[in-house]
Structure formats: C-alpha cells, structure tokens
Nucleic acid binder design. Structure first.
Length: 756
DNA sequence: AAATCCGCGTTTTTT
DNA sequence: ACGCGGATTT
C-alpha cells in the first residue's frame, strides 16, 4: 500500500483536508500556532500531524509528546492515532498524567541530600484529590488552633491551590494580589508551610503538586529536563488557551531542546480562567516562541448555518477578543429554539419528552446531549429522563469515586501502597469499626510525628501501642496485623488486590450492617469498582507501559486519582448524555439542549459580582465564552431552555431569561413561549418575550449605539443588562448624564450611523 | 467510643 | 432539601 508513487502515504494523510489544515499537518520544524475555531477539524489535524511526523518525517512515536486537556480527549486521540499507525511508545495524556508518570521515576531526586528516610518522597507517593486535601488542611487548622468556622478548609485549600497554579513559592515575601476573603495572608502562608510539610510526611502530592514538582525538578536539575526535552522531538499541546502559568512553563521546558512545539487552541473557548488559566499564553505565543508559524482554521464542518450564526453573534459581544471569522458552507438548518418553562421540573420534562419523541421517531439516544451550568441542575434533568424512559449517562459531576464505600476501599489500597499516607490511615482504621477513636489516634499521631514516622508504624510498634488502652489498643493491633497481611497486595494486579481486600475486611458484612435504610446499592458500587479494576488490568496487559505508569495496583490508583469523570462505560446501549457546559468542551452532538439559560445562572452570579478590577466585564465574558462553547457543540439542532422559577436552596426563586438570549440574531431564533401551562400566563407576557425575539428595539441595541429618548435627548448606550422584563440599558446622555432605562418602557430610537 | 441530634452552608465550573 | 461536621447524649 505504500509502494505506489512515493506520494501515496502523504496524499492519504492529507485526504479531505482543506489547505490550512494541510499546512498545519505538514508544518516541519519550529513553533506552530494553530488557531482553531470550533468544529474546524482540530483533532483531525493533530492526529494526522502525528501520523505525518511518523510516516513522513521518520519521527519515532516515542519521540512525540501530545498533551490534551482531559483524559477523555487523550483516549480519543490515542484511538484515532492508533487507527493510522502503530503508536507504541507515544506519550498522549494530560499534563497531570504526564507529570505523574515522570515523577514515578524521578521524584526521589527532589529529596534534598540531607533528608534521610522519613519525610522523603518515594515513587509510591499517593495523589490527593481535593477532598483529601481539605481533610488534611482541616486537621492542620485544628492542630494549629485556628477557628474552624472562620477558616474553612476548602477556602484555605482553594487559596493555596491558586498560588500554586501561578507558580508561586511558599515564601512569605511573595505577596499575593489578594488575600483570601477574610483570611489573612500570614495565616495562609503559615498553613501552606504546614501543609507542604505534612504532604511530604505523608508521601502525598495534590493535583497542583504534580505539575509543580516536575517544574521544580526541571529547574533544579537541568540534566533531567534535558533528558526529557531531548527525548521529545515534537511536543503538541491541545486546548492551549486553557493552560495556566505552570503548564506554560512546563511546555517551555519540554520543548526547549528541539523547539518543535505545536499548540492548538481558541481564545474564544477559554473557560478556565477561574482555575488559573491564562489566556495570554495563547495570545502571546508568537512573541514567546519566536518565528512561530500561524495557521487559522476557520471553516466549520460541524454545525448548520443557523447555529453558527447564533454562536458568532454571541461571541462578538465580547470586547476582549481577537476577531476571528468562522464560517460554514452547510445549510442553514432549523432555527435555534428557545423554550420557556414554568419551573425546573417542567423544563426538564420538556427536554426529556422531546428527546423521547425523537427517539420514537427513529433517532438514536446518543444523538442528544443536555448541558447545564451547575451540577445541581443534573438532578431534575436526570429524574425527568428516567420518567420519560430515555436512556442516559451522566458525565462527571457527582463522582463515582466520591462515594463512601468507594473511598473506603481506595483508602485501604492507598495505604497498602503508601504506608505513610495518614489521611488514608485515618479513613481506613475505623471502617469497619475497630473502636479506635480520635483520642487514641491523636496519641499515636503525636508519637509518630515525634519520631518522624507513620501512623501505621506506630500502630505496629509496641511503644506506640502502649499509648492506648483497651478496645482501641486491640483495634489498632488488629488493624496493623491486617495491613501486614495486605502488604503483598501492593504488587498485585488491581483487581486481585481489590478482591482480596474486600474479602479480608469482610466488607460485604460491613455494608450490610451499615445499610441504614438509605437503600443505596453500595454492593453494586463495589462490584462496579471491581469491574473497573479488572478493566484496568486488562488494558494495562494489552498495552504494557504505554501511557500508564506501572500497571498493577499503583497504576490503578493513579488512574483513579486522575480520571475523575468515569470516561468509560460507553459499552452497551446508546444513551443520551448529561453534563456541565465545562465538560462539553471538545465534544459534539447532533442535538444539544442547554438548560437554565437564565440570568445569574448562565452568566453565573459569581461572575457578576466581581464588578471591579482591571476588567469589569471579564467575568461575564468568560460566561459568554462558555455559552459559545455550548452552542458550538450542536451539529444540527440547538434548543435553549429557561424556567421562570427554580428551586434554589430549597426555595422557589424567580428567574429571568439570560441576557445572552437577547444577543441571538433575530433571524435564527424560533419560538419563545412554549409554556406548558398557558393559563398561568399573565396577559401581555408574550410581549415580554419579545425582548429576545426578533422585533423590538432591545435586540437591535448594541453597546456604543447612539440613541434618542423623548425626555432625555440624545446619548450613547454604555451597557446592556438583563433581559425579558428586566432588559435594561445604561445610556450616557449628552445633557442628562447616565441613566438606566427599562427597555420595556423607555421608547428609545436608534440613530443611524453618524446620527441622522 | 458510638449513637443521635442539630445547625448550617450548599451551588460555579475540573485535573 | 439535604448532607456533613460538630456537639451532645448514652
């Protein structure tokens, strides 16, 4: 297949690509920036490029590093590359996955020469998720006698994390732009110190540490950095607009040897500023990496004309933006539907019913997706789907791995692999109950801390055990004995370890006893966990050393820590997908519903509050990008829904339609009031809907327009807020100053360009 | 040390 | 409304 006319493989790789796409695929050496609009075939370009490098440039797969944003994206990319070539040795994964892998072999280099034995990192380190982190911080705060009410662990943790994301050290000198809300800077600095020390003692790393430690490694050990940098002849980073400072620096290091860095992204889809993503990384790429080639992918192959027009109109409202034109040659397709319901259950029901109807008409369930801004909206939608009999799956959200029984078992396994893990110890030691209470734990914890050893070691030693009496002592001894027996499992395959653990601690009995009416199928969850472990083993077997660290229990635990959304489970019948707008990035579906397109929900309240700072609109603009991301996932049909009232904190709250609805161009929108209960509707409400319907003046107003008012005279539109009844414009009048006007009442006339 | 009760915050978004 | 952590009982 390769012999024909030399060019054959290349033309195969380039088949069906437009010219900028081809340019990106066949870019040779040096930095490359791919600005890729939604649906522009970005993934295709990246995967083809990898194949092209291997097949045409003779690059070995092991010399290529491809970094994606999520595990899901990584898996997809791997599959697609695998379909084109044997990609053995290729590194594809997230920043976190890659760093964990590097640290598995290099972390011991981070222990200073003086550190001896205890308090040192080993390759068996465990990864703490956010709740592990918070638990540890809670403990530290308590030990340091801080008021638990004032210093909430999650708050403190979030601030520490924010620091780390900006690559700030633990030094006191490094002032932060802001202290935590109501938390003094010195407190944060102190707690962070304690935290770092405790993490080291526990041989544990949190998500931020994974990146930061590798950065530290690269900076303190140029030899190590060069080893990796020279190994990777080509580095590709996807979703570059969402990288933070640390990731940027890592990228620099990794590409420092060969200089072959290709990044791909879209500033309009930057939706992670809240967790430290810095959009400047992509905006400044050309400057940072001199002489970068720039390719723009602007043709959209995904969505119909109407959907794209809606997307384009919305995103153009952002001021902080580089103009980019996305276009399509596809047909206009159906109009974008806007659906109003009386409350969140009606909304959910309307969505589920519509999906059910279309399935009945022959569509497949997996053609449908429902997006929402916040996780709590999942509930109503889920129950409506169940009621309507629509098969569905929830991506991310309330984690499988967050469940009690799952966390219990994982804690045991973590402890088996890493006996220093105090958080795991504390969790495991008393489930099932062994009569070991806090007093006893504190006693041996102090003993252990004095000797710079672990709780488990304390529980094993005569001396440590002597500190407690009675039931607690027996319990500790029993636990230590149990862990002794379990120790060999550290080197077993994940499923074997898991099964033996469940057996040893008689977890079935424990669950049965624990089963206090709540009726959750804990056993089913444990079964599922076992299945996951078995699946992991199977894959590790099939691709030894591919992307996963070690295989076995260690590898499994790492995967569990890093794969938060259960990305698998696609086997079986096709299902509709429920997820947050954030998780939706990078995906596409024939029909997309976006629920809760309401003020304070789609521009989320939190984004509205931060109305000061250098850019008061930054928050809303990020929300708008999020909306844009959601819209552009739809291939054929887009339905936007909102409710008039919604249960919030257990009580009814009245909602108004999102300002974003008013930004949709008149021509592409269909419907508006499809209330299930027309009787309830107050007369005249239809006009209110007009605020985002084609027609009334409000949709035609833009910031900057010159307008005339009967009473106030001429002025300029400064801001537009609200929608529906609440649609308001702030207008600066020539002689009457700044006024807020309710568009429903104010009769504003727009003046032609130049003020006719 | 375990069981029960009470009050409060929760709801951005994820690796 | 609900779950969790903390306080209060037993």
């Amino acid at each position: 297949m390769r012999a024909v006319a030399g060019e054959a493989p290349a033309s195969g790789l380039l088949a069906g690509l437009n010219s900028p796409q081809q340019e990106a695929v066949t870019h040779g050496d040096g930095p490359l920036l791919i600005l890729a609009g939604p649906g522009s075939g970005k993934t295709r370009v990246i995967t083809r490029r990898i194949a092209w490098l291997v097949l045409e440039r003779g690059v070995r797969p092991g010399e290529i590093l491809a970094i994606t944003f999520t595990n899901k994206a990584a898996g997809e990319m791997r599959d697609r590359v695998l379909a084109m070539l044997p990609s053995r040795g290729l590194w594809i994964g997230t920043f976190h996955g890659m760093c964990a892998r590097i640290l598995r072999s290099e972390i011991e280099l981070l222990n200073g020469p003086e550190s001896t034995g205890t308090g040192a990192y080993t390759r068996d380190f465990t990864i703490y998720d956010t709740s592990d982190r918070n638990e540890l911080i809670r403990k530290l705060l308590k030990e340091a006698n801080y008021d638990a009410a004032r210093f909430k662990p999650s708050m403190v943790g979030a601030w520490i994390s924010a620091w780390k994301n900006q690559a700030r050290g633990a030094g006191v000198q490094e002032a932060q732009p802001e202290d935590g809300e109501g938390i003094e800077h010195e407190v944060l600095v102190r707690v962070r110190r304690l935290y770092e020390a405790a993490m080291r003692a526990n041989n544990a790393l949190d998500f931020d540490d994974l990146l930061l430690k590798v950065l530290e490694l690269f900076e303190h050990r140029p030899g190590v950095r060069d080893a990796y940098a020279s190994r990777f002849r080509h580095v590709l980073v996807d979703e570059y607009q969402d990288t933070n400072r640390v990731q940027y620096l890592l990228t620099r290091h990794l590409s420092s040897f060969h200089g072959n860095l290709a990044v791909c992204g879209d500033p309009d889809q930057s939706i992670y500023a809240w967790r430290g993503a810095d959009i400047r990384n992509i905006l400044d790429f050309e400057r940072d990496f001199g002489a970068a080639a720039v390719v723009r992918l602007e043709q959209n192959y995904r969505s119909t004309g109407n959907i794209l027009a809606a997307a384009q109109a919305v995103i153009q409202r952002n001021r902080a933006r580089k103009e980019k034109r996305i276009w399509t040659s596809a047909a206009e397709g159906p109009k974008v539907a806007v659906l109003r319901s009386s409350d969140e259950n009606e909304e959910a029901r309307a969505i589920a019913e519509e999906i059910r109807g279309r399935i009945a008409a022959g569509r497949s369930p997996d053609e449908f997706a429902v997006f929402y801004r916040v996780n709590f909206m999942q509930r109503a939608i889920e129950s409506a789907m169940r009621l309507a009999g629509v098969p569905y799956q929830v991506v991310g959200g309330l984690e499988f791995y967050a469940r009690r029984e799952i966390r219990d078992l994982i804690a045991y396994l973590k402890l088996v692999v890493n006996p220093s893990d105090e958080i795991a110890f504390r969790r495991a030691v008393n489930t099932p109950q062994r009569g070991v209470g806090e007093k006893s734990l504190d006693a041996i914890a102090r003993w252990a801390a004095d000797r710079r050893t672990s709780l488990l070691a304390a529980a094993r030693s005569e001396e440590g055990l002597a500190l407690v009496r009675g039931r607690a002592r027996a319990g500790l001894a029993a636990f230590a004995g149990l862990m002794e027996r379990l120790a060999p499992l550290a080197d077993a395959p994940a499923a074997v370890a898991m099964a033996q653990l469940v057996d040893e601690i008689d977890y079935a009995a424990w669950m049965a006893q624990m089963d206090d009416e709540s009726g959750v199928d804990r056993e089913a969850n444990v079964e599922e966990l076992l299945a996951h472990a078995a699946e992991y083993d199977r894959r590790a077997e099939a691709a030894p050393g591919e992307d996963r660290a070690a295989g076995g229990l260690r590898g499994f635990l790492q995967d569990v820590a890093l794969v938060s959304d259960v990305d698998g489970m696609e086997e079986g019948a096709p299902r509709a997908t429920l997820m947050t707008l954030h998780s939706a990035k990078g995906l596409e579906f024939p029909t997309v519903f976006i629920a809760g397109v309401e003020e304070e929900l789609l521009p989320h309240v939190r984004s509205l509050i931060e109305a000061e700072g250098p850019d008061p609109d930054a928050g809303v603009e990020e929300e708008r990008r999020l909306f844009y991301v959601g819209i552009t996932r739809a291939k054929e049909r887009l339905v936007l829904t909102h409710a008039r009232t919604r249960l919030h904190f257990g009580q009814e709250s009245f909602r108004s339609p999102s300002r974003f609805l008013a930004e949709l161009p008149p021509g592409v929108v269909e419907g508006g009031g499809t209330d299930e209960d027309p009787d309830e509707e107050e007369p005249g409400e239809e006009e209110v809907l007009g605020a985002y319907e084609p027609g009334p003046v409000s949709v035609q107003l833009k910031v900057g327009d010159r307008v005339e008012h009967d009473h106030f005279g001429r002025g300029t539109v400064e801001r537009l807020q609200g929608s529906g009844v609440n649609a308001r414009a702030t207008v600066r009048f020539v002689s009457a100053g700044e006024r807020q006007l309710l568009l429903q009442y104010a009769r504003l006339r727009r003046l032609g360009e130049g003020g006719r």
